[in-house]
């Protein structure tokens, strides 16, 4: 295949497994597939080029729009790739003796995961009103409201599924933070 060709790949990843996703992007780069952009539902587009040893890191927070922070990352050899909401992807060529971590201390890593936790907790709160409003009285919270059918019922179950996924995410990120605190 020619260089410059865009290759699309689908891969879903979770915020609590960001390091696995970073390794995957690195292994794609070693095959000559360099990330161009991606989205929240896991579609990735890569540009084909020469194989390279490149580290990818997901940074979190609104500070990407802070020009001083961007400048510092660029000075340190990082290239901005793309964003998914408040997640920002940066990459840097790996060489012997060159640091390829954005966060080099646990305080920084914990602070980053705390930001992820806050976003997830906001997500949990956002799911609650539609579930509570559609539930009538409390037993329906668990079994689902009898009066809802068709699309409204499906929407409600989607809210419940999202709520459970986010709660699971909160637990997983919480565990990562606790693990980092023990080091």
């Amino acid at each position: 295949m020619e260089n410059g060709t865009v290759v699309r790949k689908y891969k879903l990843w979770w915020a609590w497994k960001d390091d696995k996703h970073e390794q995957w992007l690195q292994s794609m780069a070693s095959q000559g597939l360099h990330l161009r952009d991606t989205n929240a539902i896991g579609m990735h587009s890569f540009v084909r080029g020469a194989p390279a040893d490149v580290a990818y890191r997901w940074d979190m927070g609104a500070q990407r729009r802070d020009p001083h922070y961007r400048q510092l990352l660029q000075d340190a050899g990082w290239e901005y790739v793309t964003s998914i909401g408040v997640w920002h992807c940066w990459r840097k060529t790996r060489r012997a003796g060159v640091a390829t971590e954005i966060y080099t201390d646990n305080t920084g890593r914990i602070r980053r995961y705390r930001k992820v936790l806050i976003v997830m907790c906001l997500g949990v709160l956002a799911q609650l009103p539609p579930i509570l409003i559609s539930s009538g009285h409390w037993p329906e919270l668990l079994v689902g409201p009898a009066h809802l059918t068709g699309i409204p019922a499906a929407m409600r179950w989607l809210n419940v599924a999202l709520l459970l996924l986010l709660l699971y995410g909160v637990a997983r990120i919480g565990k990562r933070i606790r693990d980092l605190k023990q080091v």
């Binding site: 500070q63 922070y69 510092l72 340190a76 990082w78 966060y103 080099t104 305080t107 920084g108 602070r111």
Partner: peptide, 8 residues
């Protein structure tokens, strides 16, 4: 020092 750590 990584840039994220330094900024913190």
């Amino acid at each position: 020092l990584g840039p994220g750590t330094l900024y913190g």
